[in-house]
Simulated scan of single mutants.
Amino acid sequence: MAGAAGPDAGATGERRDMSQRDGGQGTGAGVVRMSPARRTPVGSVLRAVAAAVAVLLGIAVVVYLGRAGYRDVDGRGLTFVDCLYYAAGSLFPADYAGVTPISTSARLASVVVIMPLRVVFLVVLIGTTIRVLDERSRQAYKIKRWRSRVRDHVVVVGYGTKGRSAVVGLLGEGMRPENIIVVDTDQSAVDAASAAGLVTVQGSGTSNEVLRSAGVPDARAVVVAVARDDTAVLVTLTARELAPNAQVVASVREEENVHLLRQSGADPVVVSSGTAGRLLGLATSTPSVVEMVEDLLTPSEGLAIAEREVEQTEIGASPRHLSDIVLGVVRGGRLFRVDAPEADAIEPGDRLLYVRKATPATG
């Protein structure tokens, strides 16, 4: 199979994607990860300290208001500092080996200095464990909620140069980041996708179990953006088997391998080397044409190519006479260019491929 051995030319110097890492071999079950909540450490600590101080003061006030029912060890009434010490001792009980602060200054030092140091000691011992368990619990809850709510999502296999560009295009079309699932074996690629707010699954796209974890059976579309043509065929076959009705879009380096991707179940097949070569050829004589093509392919600025349903008032009219710049008519899953005889008159159920003003991505 042509192009199977060489890396993607556009990925030179870039991070290799999952197909280059594992050579198409399965790596077991995928690990789903949601984008972590963006909380600063300082903010988390301040919120925890504020909550602890509020609880401490609350107990001290309750004891002080009911101080008539309390007596100190020497039989005298309680001051507010005594109540504060009692509250701190109730929250953080400890055996001082018979040593008990009696004076007001000693009790105040115990509350202000010793008790906080005890808390710091406990945080050093068990803080990391609690933080890890808490993050795992939040992840498990978020994943469970995501699985129950996700619909109409897109799975992108491979987060290299092509995969990242595909995600940018999806976000530019208004898709929410949580509805985009990235599959890759490279830890750095998974981390980058997660930092962008995407759902990630670490594993090989050639594995049934990994693609099931990514929700391929219920996906609207699967984008195969791996670097090797042979791996693209395997991923496409696996995805098509799991999702017979989903749209599978694949990228291939060499044009002679297009028929293999189509036979494997891919719908549109994009030839990366052929497309780039044609643009390079145009750039030598008409660079402005290349600039316009790039503009049309960038959904967040300038002009963009989009697809829409026809309006009732447009049925029977010629697409060339509409206010929109129509490029083609999609009828029954087939695309007819605007100059084709089949596109002379718009029919019910048609969809129009047209040029619109791009809107900035909001995801």
Rank of each mutant, 00 (worst) to 15 (best):
residue 102 I to Q: 12
residue 137 S to A: 15
residue 314 E to G: 02
residue 48 A to L: 06
residue 357 K to A: 09
residue 266 A to C: 04
residue 48 A to E: 07
residue 331 R to S: 14
residue 149 R to W: 06
residue 331 R to L: 13
residue 246 A to M: 03
residue 203 G to D: 02
residue 351 R to Q: 14
residue 7 P to H: 10
residue 74 D to K: 11
residue 305 I to K: 07
residue 164 R to E: 15
residue 283 A to E: 01
residue 194 S to H: 00
residue 112 V to I: 14
residue 217 P to F: 06
residue 350 D to P: 15
residue 336 F to R: 07
residue 258 V to G: 00
residue 153 H to I: 07
residue 301 E to V: 12
residue 93 P to S: 11
residue 295 D to A: 08
residue 176 R to Y: 03
residue 76 R to A: 14
residue 70 Y to R: 10
residue 90 S to Q: 11
residue 28 G to K: 13
residue 285 S to G: 02
residue 226 V to T: 13
residue 258 V to F: 04
residue 31 V to S: 12
residue 285 S to H: 03
residue 126 I to E: 06
residue 260 L to Y: 08
residue 358 A to K: 10
residue 310 V to N: 00
residue 153 H to A: 08
residue 359 T to S: 12
residue 208 N to C: 01
residue 31 V to I: 15
residue 320 R to I: 04
residue 158 G to N: 12
residue 241 E to R: 14
residue 31 V to D: 14
residue 15 R to H: 08
residue 296 L to W: 05
residue 157 V to K: 12
residue 311 E to H: 14
residue 38 R to Q: 12
residue 162 K to N: 12
residue 206 T to D: 00
residue 117 L to H: 07
residue 200 T to P: 01
residue 252 V to K: 03
residue 45 V to E: 06
residue 189 A to C: 03
residue 222 V to S: 13
residue 240 R to K: 14
residue 167 V to D: 11
residue 103 S to A: 12
residue 310 V to S: 00
residue 238 T to Y: 04
residue 191 D to N: 05
residue 266 A to T: 05
residue 107 R to E: 13
residue 24 G to L: 13
residue 245 N to A: 10
residue 31 V to C: 07
residue 76 R to D: 12
residue 209 E to H: 01
residue 168 V to R: 15
residue 121 F to L: 06
residue 141 Y to P: 00
residue 95 D to F: 12
residue 182 V to L: 02
residue 184 D to L: 03
residue 105 S to R: 11
residue 251 S to V: 12
residue 71 R to G: 11
residue 177 P to K: 03
residue 293 V to A: 03
residue 360 P to C: 11
residue 139 Q to Y: 04
residue 241 E to D: 14
residue 339 D to S: 13
residue 88 A to L: 01
residue 211 L to S: 05
residue 109 A to D: 14
residue 258 V to M: 08
residue 46 L to C: 08
residue 252 V to G: 02
residue 144 K to P: 00
residue 221 A to D: 09
residue 99 V to F: 14
residue 85 Y to N: 11
residue 328 G to H: 07
residue 65 L to T: 10
residue 42 V to N: 05
residue 218 D to I: 04
residue 176 R to A: 15
residue 334 R to V: 15
residue 308 R to I: 01
residue 48 A to M: 06
residue 317 A to I: 00
residue 96 Y to Q: 11
residue 299 P to W: 02
residue 179 N to F: 06
residue 312 Q to P: 00
residue 154 V to H: 09
residue 38 R to G: 03
residue 325 I to N: 10
residue 184 D to R: 02
residue 146 W to Q: 11
residue 193 A to Y: 01
residue 102 I to D: 10
residue 7 P to C: 10
residue 184 D to V: 04
residue 259 H to Q: 09
residue 125 L to S: 03
residue 163 G to H: 10
residue 315 I to Y: 00
residue 198 L to C: 02
residue 46 L to D: 09
residue 239 A to C: 11
residue 27 T to C: 06
residue 205 G to N: 01
residue 190 V to D: 00
residue 242 L to G: 07
